[in-house]
Computed example of a mutant assay.
Amino acid sequence: MSRTNLSMSVSADGYVAGPKQSEEHPLGIGGERLHQWHIGTGRDHPVNRQVADEMLAGMAATIMGRNMFGPVRGEWGDSPWQGWWGDEPPYHCPVFVLTHHRHEPIELKGGTTFHFVTDGIMAAYEQATAIADGGPISIAGGASCARQALAAGIVDEIDLQLSPEILGGGERLFDGFSPGALNLELARVLEAPGVVHLRYNVIR
């Protein structure tokens, strides 16, 4: 049975993206500060390297929202957009993108093929599970996709990379959940300069 991991970088005030997301600011204003642990000054720390490797290495399938895939909204039209990551994205596995608009699969270098799913999170999960064949599945975000996965009960563990940043607005990971809706058990705490890596098991 596939184990499903949700991994997201989060601010001290609970945001996973800052306000006003756009092509210029894909993570919202200030959102890139949440990722300094793996793309900035902290990327060479051994704990951060371990966590970054765990996020991608060995994943058999990935699910993400359309907002994470790119800034294009509405019908795709003749947009040439293929994601933020260039010709060889870091996923190296099939990626299932939630969208309301049909799009042909996009096959890129390194084993990444983007499949576009119009039937919701459970349809994406069923496709990911079938292709993963028992291997691990990643819920890559953004916030809406993550909330849908949590609400659907398909997440087994949550990795949060907590940075001492205050964004003051944007997208929160746990918005909309009532008290007691999620039962989490702290499973691991790792520390590096400027970030604490928290792992929670989701208890059903």
Rank of each mutant, 00 (worst) to 15 (best):
Met1Asp: 10
Met1Tyr: 10
Ser2Ile: 04
Asn5Gln: 14
Ser7Val: 12
Ser7Glu: 14
Tyr15Thr: 00
Tyr15Gln: 03
Tyr15Pro: 01
Gly18Asn: 05
Lys20Gln: 15
Lys20Ser: 15
Lys20Arg: 15
Gln21Asn: 09
Ser22Trp: 08
Ser22Gln: 11
Glu24Phe: 06
Glu24Thr: 13
His25Cys: 07
Glu32Thr: 14
Arg33Glu: 14
Arg33Ile: 00
Leu34Trp: 10
His35Gln: 13
His35Pro: 03
His35Tyr: 13
His35Trp: 08
His35Val: 09
Trp37Leu: 01
Thr41Asn: 12
Arg43Ser: 08
Arg43Met: 15
Arg43Tyr: 11
Asp44Gly: 05
Pro46Ser: 11
Val47Arg: 00
Asp53Gly: 12
Glu54Phe: 07
Glu54Arg: 15
Met55Thr: 15
Leu56Tyr: 15
Gly58Pro: 10
Thr62Pro: 01
Ile63Arg: 04
Ile63Met: 09
Met64Arg: 09
Met64Phe: 11
Arg66Met: 07
Arg66Ala: 10
Asn67Ser: 12
Met68Gln: 11
Phe69Ile: 01
Phe69Trp: 14
Pro71Gly: 07
Gly74Asp: 08
Glu75Trp: 02
Pro80Phe: 07
Gln82Tyr: 04
Gly83Ser: 05
Gly83Glu: 02
Glu88His: 03
Glu88Lys: 11
Pro89Phe: 00
Pro89Gly: 07
Tyr91Glu: 01
His92Phe: 07
His92Ile: 07
Cys93Ala: 14
Cys93Thr: 15
Phe96Asn: 00
Thr99Arg: 01
His101Thr: 09
His101Lys: 04
Arg102Leu: 11
Pro105Gln: 02
Leu108Lys: 01
Gly111His: 06
Thr112Leu: 05
Thr112Asp: 00
Thr113Trp: 06
Phe114Thr: 00
His115Glu: 02
Phe116Trp: 08
Phe116Ser: 05
Phe116Tyr: 08
Val117Ala: 05
Thr118Ala: 08
Asp119Cys: 02
Ile121Cys: 09
Ala123Arg: 12
Ala124Cys: 04
Glu126Ala: 13
Ala128Ser: 05
Ile131His: 00
Ile131Leu: 12
Ile131Met: 06
Ile131Phe: 04
Pro136Gln: 14
Gly141Phe: 07
Ser144Pro: 02
Cys145Met: 12
Cys145Asn: 12
Gln148Leu: 14
Gln148Val: 08
Leu150Asn: 02
Leu150Gln: 01
Leu150Ala: 12
Ala151Phe: 06
Asp156Val: 09
Glu157Gly: 10
Glu157Ser: 14
Gln161Lys: 08
Leu162Trp: 09
Leu162Val: 15
Leu162Arg: 12
Ser163Ala: 15
Pro164Arg: 13
Leu167Thr: 04
Gly168Ser: 08
Gly170His: 10
Gly170Ile: 12
Arg172Pro: 05
Phe174Lys: 04
Phe174Tyr: 12
Asp175Ile: 03
Phe177His: 07
Ser178Leu: 13
Ser178Tyr: 09
Ser178Phe: 05
Pro179Gln: 05
Gly180Met: 11
Gly180Ala: 10
Leu182Asp: 03
Leu182Lys: 04
Leu182Met: 10
Asn183Ile: 08
Glu185Asn: 06
Ala187Tyr: 00
Ala187Asp: 13
Arg188Tyr: 00
Leu190Ala: 04
Leu190Pro: 00
Glu191Cys: 11
Gly194Pro: 11
Val195Ile: 13
His197Leu: 05
His197Thr: 04
Tyr200Gly: 01
Tyr200Lys: 00
Val202Trp: 03
Ile203Met: 13
Ile203His: 06
Arg204Val: 08
Arg204Asn: 15
Arg204Gly: 14
